[in-house]
Amino acid sequence: DAEFRHDSGYEVHHQKLVFFAEDVGSNKGAIIGLMVGGVVIA
């Protein structure tokens, strides 16, 4: 149960990062950079 909640939280966090990247611009380099930055921060 705890693992499921953790996975759901991660999924929401990931979707927010992707949405933010798409909102800023559909530049693949920027999106990839944001994703990598999110992984480093996390």
Rank of each mutant, 00 (worst) to 15 (best):
H6M: 10
S26C: 04
M35S: 01
F19E: 04
D7Q: 14
L34G: 00
S8M: 09
A21R: 06
G9D: 06
A21S: 07
G38C: 13
Y10A: 10
L34N: 00
K16D: 04
D23C: 04
I32V: 04
L34M: 09
F19P: 06
F20C: 05
G33E: 05
G33P: 00
A30I: 15
E3T: 14
V39C: 04
V18Q: 12
A42W: 02
V24F: 07
D1V: 05
V24Q: 15
G38E: 00
H14R: 10
G29V: 15
I31G: 03
G29L: 05
K28W: 03
G9N: 11
N27R: 00
K16V: 07
K28Q: 06
G29S: 02
G9L: 09
E22M: 05
H6S: 08
Y10G: 11
E11I: 09
E22P: 15
A2M: 10
L34F: 03
F20E: 06
F4R: 11
G29A: 05
G9H: 12
E3Y: 06
G37N: 09
E11N: 14
V40L: 02
S26Y: 06
K28E: 06
K28H: 10
I31L: 03
K28G: 06
H14N: 11
A2R: 12
V39K: 02
K28A: 11
G33S: 02
K28L: 02
L17D: 05
D1A: 11
N27H: 07
H6V: 05
F4N: 10
S8T: 07
A2W: 13
G25Q: 10
E3N: 13
Y10Q: 11
V18T: 13
S26K: 04
M35C: 02
A2T: 12
A42P: 04
V18K: 09
Q15W: 00
E11G: 13
G29P: 03
V39A: 01
G25E: 06
F19N: 07
I32N: 00
E3M: 05
I32P: 01
K28R: 07
V40P: 01
D7T: 15
D1P: 13
S8W: 11
I32C: 02
G9P: 14
Y10I: 11
I32T: 00
G29Y: 02
E22V: 08
A30Y: 03
G29N: 06
H13G: 08
H6Y: 11
V18N: 09
M35G: 00
L17I: 14
A2G: 12
Y10M: 08
F4V: 08
H13C: 14
E11F: 10
A30V: 15
H6A: 10
H14V: 14
M35H: 01
D1N: 13
F20Q: 08
V12M: 14
H14E: 07
K28S: 10
D1T: 09
F4H: 11
D23I: 00
D7W: 12
E22C: 14
V18H: 09
A21F: 14
G25F: 14
S26L: 10
R5N: 09
Y10E: 13
V36R: 03
V18E: 04
G25L: 04
I41C: 00
A21V: 12
V12G: 11
G29K: 00
N27E: 00
G9R: 13
K28I: 08
V24N: 10
D23A: 07
G37H: 00
D23P: 15
H13E: 06
